[in-house]
């Protein structure tokens, strides 16, 4: 049983390794977010499940940890991506389509309305 848990934890660690390789290889911030924050979900979940198999007494707490990771992880990556988009971080030239085209004027009005920011602070570059 201990061996089985160790194997699952190893699988999770491999996923985390792949995520970190992807973090280096990907060309722009959105693709890094895709790989970096979310290949880790399965990695983290598998590591915690493996730990729960090795030490069954901790399983309740580990299940709670999995639930919290699954609840908070998408929120943080969504907010990072959204912030990156609104300060106009450039995306890679391999991007094929962008349906969320926001003109500068609309964007500045939106940002002022929501956050009370000066439009000048948004000019990155």
């Amino acid at each position: 049983m201990e061996l089985f848990g160790a194997i699952i934890t190893l699988l999770g660690a491999i996923f985390l390794l792949i995520a970190s390789i992807g973090l280096v290889r990907m060309p722009d911030v959105y693709n890094r977010l895709q790989v970096g924050t979310k290949a880790t979900t399965l990695g983290t979940i598998l590591s915690l499940i493996g730990l729960a198999i090795v030490i069954p007494g901790w399983s309740g707490k580990l299940i709670l940890l999995i639930i919290f990771v699954m609840m908070t992880n998408p929120v943080s990556s969504h907010v990072l991506a959204r912030a990156a988009y609104y300060i106009k971080l450039p995306y890679t030239s391999r991007t094929v389509v962008d349906k969320l085209k926001v003109s500068d004027k609309v964007l500045n009005v939106e940002m002022e309305k929501r956050y009370g920011l000066e439009s000048k602070t948004l000019k990155v570059k």
Partner: peptide
């Protein structure tokens, strides 16, 4: 979750980096 994790892992490890990103 598992299917697409394997898919992304495959993309990361392929030397030619077969991505085709975009916002839909």
């Amino acid at each position: 979750l598992i299917k697409s994790n394997l898919d992304v892992a495959r993309r990361v490890l392929t030397p030619s980096l077969p991505i085709n990103p975009g916002i839909v």
